[in-house]
Simulated scan of single mutants.
Amino acid sequence: MTATETTTTQPRTGELPAISEPARVLPRDARQLTRIFLDQLAVLGEGTPEYQYARNTLIEMNVSLVRYAAARFRSRGQDEMEDVVQVGTIGLIKAIDRFELTREVEFTTFAVPYIVGEIKRFFRDTSWAVHVPRRLQEARIQLAKATEELRSRLGRTPTVKELSQLMCLSEKEVDEARLASNGYSSSSLDAAVSGGDDGEAALADFIGADDHGLELVEDFHALAPLIAALDDRERRIIHLRFVEERTQAQIGEELGVSQMHVSRLLNRTLARLRHSMLSTN
């Protein structure tokens, strides 16, 4: 018997099969069952036992997809790999919650970027405080070893020239490695620093920040009259989808129309807005 045969029994509710051990379902069977469960998840009410059963089963049944995506990070230790799988599962859950049947892609194609994205975010947040190219990360390690060796040999802090000779790098590359070392750890923006006449102040008081939202001002300015020109229902759909982040099924329920009808209206409205935006540029 296959794993699927030993864990799948008669349907539990409607068209949903009862799977006692979803994690043991073979990947080739999981793909077909995933379509069935996603189809039902779109029509089941959130918070109902049937909805929770479908969602939890989808998560457990597709953990193999998480392990597949995590395999590219297998150079990490076994302990850390378990953390990677857990983080990747968060991406899987996001993919399940955001997948829509009207998308013309397989769920696996849709889910993998979410899973890998969560894993990369994990490494970014738990390793280097600032993203540094791998070349400079490796140079930092070499710099630390060379500095310690020369300090022991010379009895003082080595110069850039001495380090460059030992490391077989140019002095500019040594300076870059030193600068990269600053990205390995970070200080809290609440850290106290000398504030001149006022005594101590927080580091954040001396650090400016770019407001990336300003880059969108021109787009928002051009989009506002186009949205104002839409009819009430079209504006309502846009608001529910992109401001309140409702799913198409939820929007259809509120408006009293089918999810497919919402999808057609949304695609038509977005296409019109896109065309109008491009025409004004």
Rank of each mutant, 00 (worst) to 15 (best):
P27Y: 04
N267G: 14
R151C: 06
L266C: 12
A146S: 06
S194F: 14
D232C: 10
D205L: 03
D232H: 08
T109C: 11
L92F: 03
R103H: 05
A224T: 00
G88T: 04
R67Y: 04
R12N: 13
G252C: 05
V217T: 04
R272V: 07
V66W: 03
E104C: 15
L255A: 08
I238H: 14
G47I: 07
S181M: 15
I90F: 12
L154F: 12
Q248K: 14
L270P: 00
H275E: 13
S181L: 10
R31Q: 10
M81W: 04
A222D: 09
H212G: 14
A42N: 13
V87R: 02
F122A: 05
L101S: 15
P158I: 00
R28N: 07
L38G: 04
D125L: 10
D39P: 10
P158Y: 09
G91A: 14
V217F: 03
N281V: 11
P17I: 05
G14D: 10
I141E: 06
R31Y: 02
I238V: 10
F99A: 09
H221P: 05
G88H: 07
H275L: 13
T8M: 15
E234S: 12
K145T: 09
R67L: 01
V217Y: 05
R151Q: 02
L38D: 09
G183A: 10
L38A: 10
A209T: 13
F123Y: 07
K120F: 08
E100W: 08
H275A: 11
R236T: 05
V112C: 14
H221M: 09
A222M: 05
T48Y: 10
T89K: 14
R67M: 11
S185D: 11
G256S: 08
G91R: 14
E149C: 04
A229Q: 02
F220N: 03
D125K: 08
Q40R: 13
G183H: 07
S127Y: 10
S181P: 03
Q165C: 01
A71F: 05
R272K: 14
G117D: 01
S164R: 01
H275N: 15
E234D: 03
F123T: 00
P17M: 11
V262H: 11
D175P: 00
R121D: 00
F220D: 03
Y53L: 11
A111I: 08
M81L: 04
I141Y: 12
E60S: 06
V25L: 08
V43F: 12
Q137H: 13
I96F: 00
R274C: 01
L38Q: 14
I227P: 00
Y114V: 12
G213C: 06
E80D: 10
S186Q: 01
S181A: 12
R268M: 12
R274F: 03
N267W: 02
